[in-house]
Simulated scan of single mutants.
Amino acid sequence: MLFFVVVNLIGNIFPLEAIELNQTGFRHEVLRSDKTYFIMFHRSDCHECDKAAPEVDKLADQMKTIGIGVGKISLDEYPQFSKAYKVYSTPTMMLFRPHKEQLTYKGSNLFAPMSKWILENQLGGRETPQLKDDEKVDQFFSQSEKKPRFLMLSEENMIPPPFKEFCFRQRKTVKCAFACPKYPQYQTVIQKLKDIQNVDIASSDNPVIYAIHTPSDNDNDKKLNISIYNDGMVFNWLTEFYYKIVPSAKPKVIAPNNDESSSTENNNQKNDL
C-alpha cells in the first residue's frame, strides 16, 4: 500500500511529459510494439505547435494510467514522416494502434477533446453512457437489469480514464454510467439512488462511484445494495469489487506459452522510416 502512495505522490510532483521520438525510437516504440501511441508531428516555426505542446504533455501524464504512450516527432529533423503519413500541416496528431491503421485527429488542440477522442477510439467510449436524458436514466436503473451496475458521479464533466477502461474491459458483464451536476437529469439520478438505498450523496473533490448490486452472500435476498467508493485507486477497487460480486469472472492462471508470434507492420510505408 505504501508503494502505491509513494508512486502517486511522485507522479503528482513530477508529471510525465510526452517523449520526443527519433526515427529509431518511433520504429521500435510505436510500430513494432503492442502499445498504442498518440503522436504529435510538429515544426520549430509552428506557433500552434508551441501552444499545443503543454496540452499534449498533460495527455501523457493522464494516459500513462491506461498504458497509452504519448510522443512528439519533429518534422524539421525527420521530414520523411511528412510523406510517409501525409502530414501537410502542423501540428498534426495521429493515433497509432497495434495491428490497425493509424487515425488522424481533427479537432481542438486542447487536453479535454483530445483525451475524449483517444479514449473513444481506444477504449470504446460508448461503454460508459452519460445520463443526460430520461431514457438513459430509466434504462440504467431498470428493475429488470440483472448485471451489476457502476455509476460514477463527478463535479467535472469528464470521465476518468481508469473508469472508462474498467467499463470497456467488463462491458459484457456490467453496466456503467456517468453523471455530473451539469446534466439536466442529475437530480433524477440522485433520487433514483436514494430510492434504492438511503445513501448520503456527499459532495467530494474526487469522483464517487456507486456500485449497485445484489448481495452475493445471500442468494435469497434480491434487494439491491449500494457500495460507495470515493478514494484514489479507482481501477484497483473496481476490479477487486467486481470479482467479489462476479466470482466467475476472475481470470484463471494459465501456463505461459513459449511460442512467440511474429508481428506485422500496418503498411509498406513504415518500412521506409
Rank of each mutant, 00 (worst) to 15 (best):
residue 16 L to S: 10
residue 98 P to W: 07
residue 247 P to R: 04
residue 241 F to N: 03
residue 200 D to R: 08
residue 81 F to S: 04
residue 256 P to C: 09
residue 91 P to H: 06
residue 115 S to V: 00
residue 46 C to G: 14
residue 148 P to N: 03
residue 134 D to L: 13
residue 231 D to H: 13
residue 9 L to P: 00
residue 104 T to W: 00
residue 65 T to I: 13
residue 63 M to T: 08
residue 187 Q to E: 14
residue 20 E to W: 10
residue 39 I to R: 03
residue 87 V to A: 07
residue 271 N to H: 12
residue 82 S to V: 02
residue 7 V to M: 13
residue 226 I to G: 03
residue 164 K to A: 10
residue 106 K to W: 02
residue 167 C to Q: 02
residue 67 G to P: 04
residue 168 F to P: 00
residue 260 E to A: 09
residue 70 V to N: 08
residue 209 I to V: 15
residue 242 Y to N: 12
residue 239 T to E: 11
residue 74 S to G: 12
residue 207 P to F: 14
residue 54 P to E: 08
residue 141 F to L: 11
residue 165 E to Y: 09
residue 259 D to V: 14
residue 207 P to D: 15
residue 267 N to Y: 01
residue 265 E to W: 06
residue 217 D to H: 09
residue 243 Y to G: 04
residue 88 Y to R: 08
residue 78 Y to C: 04
residue 29 E to N: 14
residue 168 F to K: 05
residue 127 E to I: 00
residue 207 P to W: 12
residue 46 C to D: 15
residue 21 L to T: 10
residue 163 F to N: 05
residue 252 K to W: 03
residue 184 P to E: 09
residue 223 K to V: 06
residue 98 P to S: 04
residue 135 E to I: 14
residue 103 L to Y: 02
residue 68 I to Y: 08
residue 15 P to T: 08
residue 18 A to G: 13
residue 178 F to Q: 04
residue 215 P to W: 02
residue 163 F to H: 05
residue 235 F to M: 07
residue 136 K to E: 14
residue 195 D to K: 11
residue 261 S to A: 10
residue 251 P to Q: 06
residue 242 Y to C: 05
residue 175 K to Y: 06
residue 179 A to G: 06
residue 77 E to L: 13
residue 269 Q to L: 05
residue 103 L to C: 04
residue 186 Y to S: 03
residue 205 D to Y: 11
residue 142 S to G: 06
residue 256 P to S: 11
residue 117 W to N: 03
residue 151 L to W: 03
residue 54 P to Q: 07
residue 169 R to Q: 05
residue 187 Q to K: 12
residue 34 D to W: 07
residue 211 A to Y: 04
residue 130 Q to F: 03
residue 14 F to K: 09
residue 148 P to W: 01
residue 41 F to N: 12
residue 71 G to I: 08
residue 149 R to G: 00
residue 269 Q to S: 06
residue 149 R to I: 00
residue 50 D to Q: 15
residue 173 T to V: 15
residue 132 K to V: 11
residue 120 E to I: 03
residue 195 D to M: 07
residue 172 K to N: 14
residue 142 S to H: 07
residue 46 C to N: 14
residue 168 F to W: 05
residue 45 D to G: 01
residue 56 V to P: 02
residue 128 T to H: 01
residue 150 F to S: 02
residue 27 R to I: 08
residue 92 T to C: 09
residue 173 T to E: 14
residue 231 D to F: 08
residue 220 N to M: 10
residue 148 P to Y: 02
residue 33 S to I: 04
residue 244 K to R: 12
residue 238 L to V: 09
residue 122 Q to C: 15
residue 167 C to S: 07
residue 9 L to G: 10
residue 153 L to Y: 04
residue 252 K to P: 01
residue 248 S to R: 09
residue 172 K to E: 15
residue 127 E to Y: 13
residue 71 G to C: 10
residue 182 K to D: 13
residue 189 V to L: 03
residue 208 V to W: 02
residue 212 I to K: 03
residue 49 C to V: 07
residue 44 S to I: 06
residue 155 E to Y: 00
residue 191 Q to D: 13
residue 118 I to T: 05
residue 209 I to G: 01
residue 104 T to C: 02
residue 67 G to S: 13
residue 70 V to W: 09
residue 44 S to M: 07
residue 150 F to V: 07
residue 40 M to D: 04
residue 129 P to Q: 06
residue 184 P to Q: 03
residue 17 E to Q: 13
residue 189 V to C: 05
residue 142 S to V: 05
residue 264 T to I: 09
residue 232 G to R: 13
residue 246 V to R: 11
residue 169 R to K: 10
